[in-house]
């Protein structure tokens, strides 16, 4: 029999100007439309058009929109455990996150958590390992971080604050002038392609890497659970296929655009700097101390953290062999 025509609204947490991260929602919408002969239509709206970017989870939960495209770690104020759905400090890379989600039980673990919010979630893209942000001054030692004023939200801010950084979440329009004049010393953002657009390189030349607090930030599609259950099986299939494609599309797209963007930044006088080992070690120690504290407070967190940690160890042992062996030799030799 003929399938019904269904129209959904998708609220993205991102502006259209960040075309890669926002673009995944457009990929989803186009593919779903194509797979259903134009009968299942999803219209993406950029952040603020229906709800502000950081309200997307509320909006899907309340059924204001049927779909959201966002990152779960924006909502750690609701439950800290949600950070693992995106990326946590010293966590999994994009490939490992996919392995955990699709085959390591990650999706199922989080489905049980999101069900309490009336939401079902699907992996929806990844930024890959992010950059560590823009610093006005060079950071040589752990002591240089003490009292450093940095715009860094969420889990990254948690770890940085344990290293003595003063995390500040400023209004969007205030970040650039504050960094320019030294009101703050540093800000983190995403990766070369997106960072270039915001122009931080004009006012803070030291570009640190890696963004160890987000080694592979996974984006996610949230669907209102009731709407999902009312969806015809074929449309559910189409949605899952399209979401998986969007998940892959974003990572591939970022990999393609970041290389040239980094070269452009370097031509503009950006100084690329690797985090000193001392800082990475201290940060890793702080991160795991923080995980343990949270795990002691909350059973759900403990359940996810334990499963994640076991998976992480397996993955790191394996990736340290063939992948790392090849990469360590080949990448620096261009």
């Amino acid at each position: 029999q003929a399938q019904p025509t269904i129209r959904w609204r998708l609220a993205s947490s991102f502006p259209k100007s960040l075309d890669t991260i926002y673009g995944a929602a457009e990929v989803l919408a186009e593919r779903v439309r194509a797979l259903t002969g134009g009968r299942f239509q999803i219209r993406p709206y950029q952040a603020g058009e229906i709800v502000p970017g950081l309200q997307v989870m509320d909006a899907v939960q309340q059924g204001t929109v049927e779909v959201g495209h966002t990152a779960s770690y924006y909502f750690v104020g609701k439950a800290q455990v949600l950070a693992f759905d995106t990326s946590v400090p010293f966590g999994l890379t994009a490939r490992q996150q996919n392995a955990w989600m699709y085959f390591g039980g990650g999706i199922e673990l989080f489905r049980s958590i999101f069900a309490d919010f009336g939401i079902i979630q699907f992996p929806g893209g990844n930024t890959g390992a992010q950059m560590g942000g823009w610093f006005r001054k060079e950071i040589r030692t752990l002591a240089d971080l003490r009292g450093l004023k940095m715009r860094i939200p969420g889990p990254g801010g948690q770890v940085m604050s344990r290293l003595g950084v003063v995390p500040q979440v400023l209004a969007g329009g205030d970040i650039y002038p504050a960094l320019e004049r030294g009101t703050i010393d540093a800000t983190e953002w995403v990766n070369p392609y997106d960072d270039e657009k915001l122009g931080f390189y004009r006012v803070a030349k030291n570009y640190y890497y890696p963004g160890f607090w987000e080694p592979g930030a996974m984006l996610v599609f949230y669907v209102n659970l009731r709407e999902w259950q009312r969806l015809p099986k074929e449309y559910q299939q189409a949605f899952e296929v399209a979401a998986a494609e969007a998940n892959q599309w974003m990572m591939a797209k970022y990999d393609q655009v970041n290389g040239p963007a980094l070269q452009r930044l370097l031509r503009n006088g950006v100084r690329l700097r690797k985090w000193p080992n001392e800082i990475m070690q201290a940060a890793q120690k702080a991160a795991f101390e923080w995980f343990e504290e949270e795990a002691a407070k909350d059973a759900t967190y403990r359940r996810v953290y334990t499963a994640w940690r076991r998976f992480r160890e397996e993955q790191f042992r394996w990736f340290a062999v063939a992948e790392l062996g090849y990469e360590q030799f080949a990448f620096p030799n261009v």
């Binding site: 609204r9 229906i50 709800v51 309200q55």
Partner: peptide, 14 residues
């Protein structure tokens, strides 16, 4: 759908 108006608290919060 009527639920679209549910965006109002989120927008006010913004």
């Amino acid at each position: 759908p009527a639920s679209l108006l549910g965006a109002m608290p989120d927008r006010i919060f913004g």
